[in-house]
């Protein structure tokens, strides 16, 4: 089943400002990172997915439904966590999440039960009966996540869920999202402008820039193809580089390191053989996973 699919999706505001341009992407269920700089069109895309904004042209499908013609059906199965402050300060978390559960169509008692369950899952216990106004940023983010979860959606749309959190809070929030995506069986779209953050928990990445699709692929596909071996020798780096080049290995220098693309296990043997022949003191030899960030950077012959 396809989770989300867009086809030539375009959104312009007032005919001049282009938020999305000819975006065609299709993703499978799982944890999806939607990355892009601020203003790349992430929030516009989310609003179109929720049926809150009509696209200028193109088609869109969420969970097999069309949000432009049947927004209520889409929203019944989607939970949304907005980026900005969205909590009335004088209500308690339990009251607010219960109320919003009822707006999602849960019967009264069910709404109350599921609200306290959702708050428990995000790690709010006794404090859920206190007014939200006195909560820390981290707690408020958790309440926002709980209200998106209360009606048991099939898809969560999280807009910058780690905004304003300290490093420990970020880690906790990311761990929680990962748990929702894996253990709860709910697909998650995480919007972020921080690629390094979402690549840790996502299995699919969609990168957009200026409303255009940069790349969409599974994280595994992005990284396996480009693993490299990093070789460091205490001396004789030049000789080793020459020897490896003679072996037809496309070696590159990165400071004191030599980087060799990992073709297969034989690459290890070739490098170790070369080091042994030259009798060089091998300092380290390890597999370095390309950070996904490098995949999105302009592809030029880097660090020569």
């Amino acid at each position: 089943m396809t989770l989300l699919a867009t086809e030539s999706l375009t959104k312009t505001y007032g005919g001049r400002v282009t938020a999305l341009a000819d975006l065609t992407v299709s993703v499978e269920p799982g944890i999806i990172g939607l990355v892009g700089a601020n203003g790349a069109g992430k929030s516009t895309l989310i609003k179109i997915l929720l049926g809150l904004l009509p696209p200028t042209s193109g088609r869109v499908q969420v969970l097999g439904l069309d949000p432009t013609t049947d927004p209520a059906a889409v929203r019944a199965r989607v939970g949304y966590m907005p980026e900005h402050d969205a909590l009335p300060p004088d209500l308690s978390a339990a009251e607010l999440v219960t109320h919003l559960g009822r707006i999602s169509g849960l019967p009264r008692t069910v709404a109350r039960e599921r609200a306290s369950e959702a708050l428990r899952h995000v790690g709010l216990h006794e404090e859920r009966h206190r007014a939200v106004g006195g909560y820390s940023t981290g707690m408020k983010q958790r309440v926002k996540l709980a209200q998106a979860l209360v009606h048991d959606p099939d898809l969560l749309l999280l807009d910058e869920p780690t905004n304003g959190l300290d490093p420990a809070g970020r880690d906790a929030m990311l761990a929680l999202i990962h748990r929702i995506g894996t253990e709860f069986g709910i697909s998650v779209v995480v919007c972020s402008h921080l690629l390094g953050e979402v690549e840790r928990i996502c299995d699919t990445l969609v990168a957009i820039d200026g409303g255009r699709l940069l790349r969409a692929d599974r994280v595994s596909a992005m990284t396996t193809a480009t693993d490299v071996l990093a070789v460091e020798v205490s001396e004789g780096t030049e000789e080793l580089a020459a020897r490896l080049a003679a072996l037809d290995l496309p070696v590159t220098r990165d400071g004191r390191l030599l980087l060799v693309p990992l073709a297969d296990d034989a690459t290890y043997d070739q490098i170790l053989g070369a080091v042994a022949e030259l009798d060089l003191p091998l300092h380290r030899l390890d597999q370095r996973r390309h950070r996904v960030a490098e995949l999105f950077a302009a592809r030029e012959p880097s660090h020569v």
């Binding site: 929720l50 809150l52 907005p82 900005h84 402050d85 969205a86 009335p88 919003l100 009606h151």
Partner: peptide
């Protein structure tokens, strides 16, 4: 006005409620 101020409206409008 309270709902406008606190920004809670996106939480309403992202639900099936027209």
């Amino acid at each position: 006005s309270r709902d406008l101020r606190s920004g809670v409206l996106p939480l309403y409008f992202s639900r099936p409620l027209p």
